Simulated scan of single mutants.
Amino acid sequence: MKEIFTGGTGGNGGNGGAPPAPAALAAKVRTLAPSMTRSMQRVAEAVAGDPAGCAALTVTGLAELTGTSEATVVRTARLLGYPGYRDLRLALAGLAAQQQSGRAPAVTADIAVDDPIADVVAKLAYDEQQTLADTAAGLDTAQLGAAVSALAAARRIDIYGVGASALVAQDLAQKLLRIGILAHAMGDPHLSVTNAVLLRSKDVAVAITHSGSTGDVIEPLRVAFEHGATTIAITGRPDGPVSQYADHVLTTSTARESELRPAAMSSRTSQLLVVDCLFVGVAQRTYETAAPALAASYEALAHRHSPRSR
């Protein structure tokens, strides 16, 4: 049985790994802000909303601007992945320069009830693009590579997700099945746990939960973890409870939630990007068997839809 640890092994949160690049700063704020204290949220929102203005402030100045303390500013900088406030200021200056050059677009307004449909399309398209860019910028490629290796060598793969995440779980399962890898998407919480009991060291369990705290997803992952399976969490909250039972944590980002665009919509976009990265990585590792399997599935579908087959 593996030792249970606190916190995930992903390099996207806390102080681990190199500080995030300026382009990833806004993504870090969106991902971590919900788990921050209210005072830390004020600091995070300030630096994301006005990177140029905040880059010009001392730690005392930013504390006064946000109505917090110098210690809160430093703690926020460290939670975002920077050794100290000086490093955060450098990142803010870099982000401001990117925005001025047009390489980092400013945040658009939320969708309003009376927006014309053309504006809805434009705003949704921007948010989707930003969500994908944020997820790519914040994705720990070392964790991704380790997850790919585990999936490629797995005897069996169980994938857990509920609600919108269940759709993503099904997508990953059907992709893997098409290249000859035994994978099952578990939508029933009871079935998930009873199947997790049977997993062993050569098996893999994948939990997909944007909040990182969905009990119906965490419980089967815990059972799989304790029975020796390799466990993977795809989550928007790398500091959430699900990471406690994950060998590998893949962090997703999400666009800003609004009244007309719930978190489930944007989180699914980032989850699907991670799923595609996993699938392509596994297909690369297993190319000799994956390529013929894909060709066979394409041929079977083509035959099914051929007029002659009707």
Rank of each mutant, 00 (worst) to 15 (best):
A97P: 01
G102L: 02
G102P: 00
A118D: 15
Q98V: 02
D110H: 10
D115P: 11
A109Q: 12
V107P: 05
A109D: 13
I111G: 10
A93K: 01
T108M: 04
V120H: 00
D114N: 11
Q100F: 00
V113P: 08
P105K: 09
P116T: 14
I117M: 14
A93V: 00
Q98F: 02
A96T: 02
G102S: 03
G94N: 07
A104D: 09
D114V: 06
A125H: 14
A104V: 03
V120T: 09
A118K: 09
A109F: 07
K123Y: 03
D115G: 07
R103V: 02
I117Y: 09
L95A: 11
A109V: 13
S101Y: 01
S101F: 01
A106P: 04
A106L: 12
A104N: 08
L95K: 01
P105V: 06
V120G: 04
D119Y: 03
A112H: 12
T108N: 04
D110V: 06
A109P: 11
A118E: 14
I111V: 10
K123Q: 04
Q98Y: 00
V107H: 08
P116H: 10
S101G: 05
T108E: 06
V121T: 13
P105D: 08
L124T: 13
A97I: 01
G94I: 00
A96V: 01
A97C: 00
P116Q: 12
P116S: 14
V113A: 14
Q100V: 05
S101K: 02
D114W: 10
L124V: 12
L124P: 08
D115W: 02
P116I: 13
I111C: 11
V113D: 15
A97K: 03
A106Q: 13
D110M: 10
Q99I: 09
V113E: 15
Q98K: 04
L124K: 10
D115M: 06
A106N: 12
A125R: 14
R103Y: 00
D110A: 14
D114S: 12
D110E: 15
G94D: 05
Q99R: 11
L124H: 13
A112N: 15
A118S: 12
G102T: 01
Q98A: 08
I111Y: 08
G102I: 03
R103G: 05
G102A: 05
D119I: 05
G94K: 04
A93Q: 00
A125P: 14
V120M: 08
V120E: 01
A125F: 11
L124M: 15
A122V: 08
V113G: 10
K123W: 00
